[in-house]
Design a protein around this nucleic acid. Structure first.
Lengths: 226, 226
DNA sequence: GGGGCGCTGTCAGAGTAATTTCAGGCTTGC
DNA sequence: GCAAGCCTGAAATTACTCTGACAGCGCCCC
């Protein structure tokens, strides 16, 4: 609800369960909670739906005829799908938990479960995915755009707004050259002395430490280079 | 401390570790945090102590001579003991996680660990049995949303409605950035001066004490940061 | 129904951090 | 060796944040 009201796109969730009443209940509840819901009744349908609807998170029942939840999970992970998966297990058996984690699930919930808890966990999972979206890396450098913090070989580096914006630009070009004009346009709206770019390059270099990561292309601009 | 002051009985924790300095440190710290602490120096003693002191939660080092942590854990579970167990593991290897979970642990922490984190997790584990999870934690901070009260390294902290709502938002984002606009939208329905967020951040900071937990991202918003 | 108290929201000035400019020294490529 | 361009310390400027004081509101207790 919050998400839809605040104008963010709804998170897409794929519900995979062979039990029609439960499936309907989940579809209704999750819609009411602001998710865009797609359903699949069995493992085979799930594999198709994942392709078609590209969900942000998947709710997967372990116990299903034909292709069970674990197999679906393994196959999706085998294809390199990074989408978070929440597994519904029948009993709180440790074996199930372990099997789920080993198959590549990100979280699990024991049936019968409290719906609000499911919703909370889905929110947590989709949030986690979103956070990864905003992380850029190059060599041993990572930048979390949202948190405005970078890391390089471990240590966290706090950045100011401009510093982060400039580093983000360099990272998005990831090795290609960023001209002074480009940076001025995108970050400063063209309304500053070109020298301000140099000033921030200096600061970034200092904060990022050794060995140097930002290379100067005389007469042109700058680029990342390990 | 929190629990004792608020009249609830202290949670009993059993610490099992073969390293005397670490054991002492944990005993002292956890006592200060309001836990009733029992210690055991090895697996055998642990099995005895569990019977004798009936702890509410167990902290168990994996690496110990004779009977190691995993064995202790398996034996206790074999006897049907439901007490939550937090395992201390040496490395953050998935194999360890799986082994720990398979042996029946509820949570694990990788050494070296931050003591406040251990405390927060222990609180989470002991609370789990009691009620539904309206409790959020970050580092050594916990917030009980329903009770509108927080704890940090001991002392209970009473919060007003707005304070609790803002802290809850920060906790739900757990380290990610919360913009002023977001807070205004979700807590104030957009119907207030943006400055009101700052006002409440100030109040929260004062109540939460040192070291500071709320970081300002100038021009953007705020985030939790230990 | 009245008084008191705590919570909430506003304002404005002080305080602080980030940004930008400037200028001189330095490096680079020719 | 020279010119063009780059780098960086310091200072100026700007923008944003923090916080004390205060007023209004609502709730609770008498």
């Amino acid at each position: 609800m919050a998400d839809t009201e605040s104008g963010l796109p709804a998170e897409r969730v794929l519900v995979v369960d062979d039990d029609p009443p439960l499936r309907r209940m989940l579809a209704r509840t999750l819609s009411a909670e602001g998710f865009a819901v797609t359903v699949a009744a069995d493992g085979g349908a799930a594999l198709v739906e994942v392709q078609r609807s590209a969900p942000d998170v998947i709710v997967l029942d372990v116990a299903m005829p034909a292709i069970d939840g674990l197999s679906v999970c393994r196959r999706l992970r085998g294809k390199g799908l990074p989408t978070p998966i929440l597994m519904l297990t029948a009993r709180d058996a440790v074996a199930d938990r372990v099997a789920g984690l080993q198959a590549g699930a990100d979280d699990y919930l024991v049936k019968p479960f409290a719906v609000p808890e499911l919703v909370a966990r889905l929110r947590a999972l989709t949030r986690r995915g979103r956070a990864t979206d905003s992380v850029l890396t190059y060599a041993d450098l990572t930048l979390d755009v949202a948190a405005r913090s970078a890391t390089r070989s471990g240590g966290p580096i706090e950045l100011t707004g401009r510093e982060a914006a400039l580093l983000e630009l360099l990272l998005r070009e990831s090795g290609r050259t960023v001209t002074r004009d480009r940076a001025l346009d995108e970050i400063w709206d063209g309304a500053a002395e070109p020298n301000v770019v140099d000033r921030y390059i200096t600061r970034l270099r200092r904060k990022l430490g050794d060995p140097p990561l930002i290379r100067t292309l005389r007469g042109t601009g700058f680029q990342l280079r390990a």
